[in-house]
């Protein structure tokens, strides 16, 4: 238990974000093949039990394809379960920015949130790991 708690604490610190739910929160992560630099940005630090107001921002040295399909999935590896809802990434008017609708977390602990970025030829993944 202490080890887990220590991990949780470190997770919060490494995320570079405070736990204050009134402040914006973000994480950055490159995609697995390195094409994209992805930012997961939320209006406030994610909390269990409520729909979250988050977006995915993709940046690339090449242009982000206009037809890029973005799928979302996630879960708690330590508990063996997924997200409580099925969120969707919706393109916004800002090129490369996707609104994440329907995102919820069910409990505190270590979560992963992954995105499949499919341009039709070479899918890439980006996975964020963080603690609530």
């Amino acid at each position: 238990m202490p080890k887990t708690l220590l991990t949780l604490t470190l997770g919060l610190l490494l995320a570079g974000c405070g736990a204050d739910p009134n402040h914006a929160w973000h994480l950055q992560q490159p995609s697995d093949k390195g094409t994209y630099q992805a930012t997961l940005s939320c209006a406030s630090a994610p909390i269990p039990g409520a729909f979250q107001e988050c977006k995915l921002i993709l940046q690339s040295s090449q242009a982000v394809p206009a037809n890029l399909l973005v799928a979302v999935d996630g879960g708690m590896p330590a508990h063996g379960h997924g997200l409580p809802t099925a969120p969707q990434a919706i393109p916004t008017d800002t090129h490369g920015t996707y609104r994440i609708d329907g995102l919820k977390f069910s409990m505190p602990g270590e979560w992963v949130l992954g995105f499949l970025l499919d341009n039709g030829t070479q899918p890439e993944k980006v996975v964020f790991r963080f603690s609530l």
Binding site: L5, L8, A19, A45, G49, L132
Partner: peptide, 9 residues
Amino acid sequence: VMLASTLLA
């Protein structure tokens, strides 16, 4: 809950 989970950590 958020505050509590942070404290729990």
